[in-house]
Design a protein around this nucleic acid. Structure first.
Length: 505
DNA sequence: AGTGCCGGGCA
DNA sequence: TGCCCGGCACT
């Protein structure tokens, strides 16, 4: 401790004034070159310092501390160096330790006190100096601090326990910068355009903290119905999602991705690093990014066709596609383990039409029934409504005996005994057979055993009686003509409650 | 409710 | 086979 303090107080290199000739009053300027101690009285007597001073004239002389004074430029007040040095220990406890080697002092000076002369100002010096030239002292203090800072920063041995506020700030800045860099390097959002924070979904696909997109629906990640995307031609990245998609907090990634995985790192939608999943648990799906759509199909062809026909208004096949539809859908991977849930959550939120397989997607198959059957197991729940709709349509047509689908490739004309011709449409194949309805009925009035050929009904059983009855004749009948009172006048058929043979329509 | 007519039973 | 009728569908 003493050595350090002593060193700081070293006057080596200090400008001093010393008598040109010992004992004279004339002082000449010089620079202290070295200090040595000598004991005046061997063991008990006080030891004194002897300073080697390089005088202005180039001569080296030795002076005791009593003989030299600090040079005027540094010391406004002249005085014995000794007093100055001794008073350098402002607290009085710090008496220069004679035992400290001069060399040690030099070393200390070189590293810690580049300008030892300034340090010569002890507490008293500071007081006096300040009193005499406060401004100069202030500047020196500032300079000293600066120098000390430099020295400390360059020294390996500088204790780290205590740092200046500036240093702490610097460290904090470093830490902050490191954190920022870390988050930037790990956050997917940095690379994907911010989209709207939507349904939390979306983030879902949607989500937690920061939402994935600013104007797109999350729909993407959350499977919820897509919100509106302002520009259909430029579907915004969802982001949902996950999007959307939330600015993943630390430890976040992975959890939110359990449901959906993005295989393509280039995708704007699912860009963040995702824990690898077992391949067999992933199902690739294709999601339409069109505004207010969000339809999800299991095949790229299907989604392309959907986009082409539904959004681009092109009814042509893929051959005439220019590939534009590729911009409006994205490929997503679903964890099949949770597909059911995903679909379940999807159904309620997404518009039904968007989830069903419209005829357009099965354009090649006029027969809706078969198309529905061909639907993949996964897509079935999504397209459940389509087949039923078709079914109803067909049954309805059948009921009206004009089944379009089964339009008669051939019509049969059946002459009956009354000379009229009955026309019946024989529907192709299928499972049901029965009398054709109105067409026949209006043309003929068949009696007894002979009935027109049956018309096929696709799915709904015609009537409870099984066979379709001929439509009621519009013309007059015996009952009407003769009335109940004249039943005797009726034709036999009418009496027998059979088709009137007398008044045939 | 009235009417047309099919299907079935019976003689 | 003829007669009769229950019952259904349609108007």
């Amino acid at each position: 401790m003493h050595s350090r303090r002593l060193a700081k107080r070293s006057i080596l290199g200090s400008r001093v004034c010393a008598p040109s000739v010992a004992g004279e009053e004339a002082f000449l300027p010089g620079v202290v070159q070295s200090v040595k101690q000598e004991n005046v009285e061997a063991s008990t007597g006080p030891r004194r310092n002897v300073y080697t001073v390089l005088m202005q004239d180039g001569s080296l002389r030795e002076y005791t501390e009593d003989e030299i004074v600090v040079s005027p430029p540094q010391m406004a007040a002249r005085g014995p160096l000794k007093s100055s040095l001794k008073q350098g220990s402002c607290n009085g406890r710090d008496v220069p330790d004679p035992a400290v080697p001069v060399e040690g002092q030099k070393v200390e000076e070189n590293t810690l006190a580049p300008e030892p002369a300034k340090d010569l100002r002890g507490c008293d010096f500071k007081r006096t100096g300040r009193a005499l030239d406060p401004e100069k002292d202030r500047i020196r203090s500032a300079s000293l601090l600066e120098q000390k800072r430099k020295v400390v920063s360059s020294s390996i041995d500088v204790p780290q326990a205590r740092k200046s506020e500036e240093e702490e700030e610097v460290d904090m800045d470093k830490v902050t910068a490191a954190m920022v860099l870390t988050s930037l390097s790990t956050s997917p959002l940095v690379r994907s355009p911010p989209v709207k924070g939507s349904e939390g979904l979306n983030g879902s696909w949607k989500d937690g903290g920061v939402t994935p997109s600013s104007h797109s629906s999350s729909g993407y990640w959350s499977w919820s119905a897509p919100s509106d995307q302002s520009n259909p031609s430029t579907p915004s990245a969802p982001l949902c999602a996950d999007s959307f998609k939330p600015f993943r907090a630390a430890g976040g990634p992975g959890q939110a991705d359990d449901l959906i995985d993005e295989p393509d790192g280039s995708s704007l939608l699912f860009d963040e690093p995702i824990p690898r999943k077992r391949k067999n648990s992933m199902k690739v799906m294709f999601k339409c990014l069109w505004k207010n759509c969000g339809k999800v199909l299991s095949s790229s062809a299907g989604i392309q066709k959907h986009i082409r026909t539904t959004h681009l208004g092109r009814n042509c096949d893929s051959e005439c596609s220019d590939g534009e539809e590729d911009f409006y859908y994205t490929e997503i991977k679903l964890n099949t383990d949770s597909v059911a849930e995903g679909l379940g959550s999807l159904s309620p939120s997404a518009p039904l039409p968007a989830l069903t397989l419209p005829p357009a997607s099965e354009a090649g198959q006029p027969n809706g029934g078969s198309g529905a059957k061909s639907e993949s197991k996964l897509a079935t729940p999504l397209s459940r409504s389509a087949p039923s709709a078709l079914y109803l349509i067909h049954t309805d047509h059948a009921y009206q005996a004009t089944a379009p689908v089964t339009i008669p490739s051939s019509t049969s004309f059946t002459p009956n005994h009354s000379g009229t011709v009955s026309v019946s449409w024989q529907s192709p194949p299928v499972s049901f057979t029965g009398n054709s309805a109105s067409p026949t009925h209006s043309l003929t009035q068949s009696f007894g055993e002979h009935r027109p050929a049956a018309c096929t009904v696709l799915s709904s059983p015609p009537r409870t009686t099984g066979l379709l009855r001929k439509s009621r004749g519009e013309g007059k009948k015996c009952r009407k003509v003769y009335g109940m009172e004249n039943r005797d006048m009726w034709c036999t058929a009418c009496r027998w409650k059979k088709a009137c043979q007398r008044f045939v329509d």
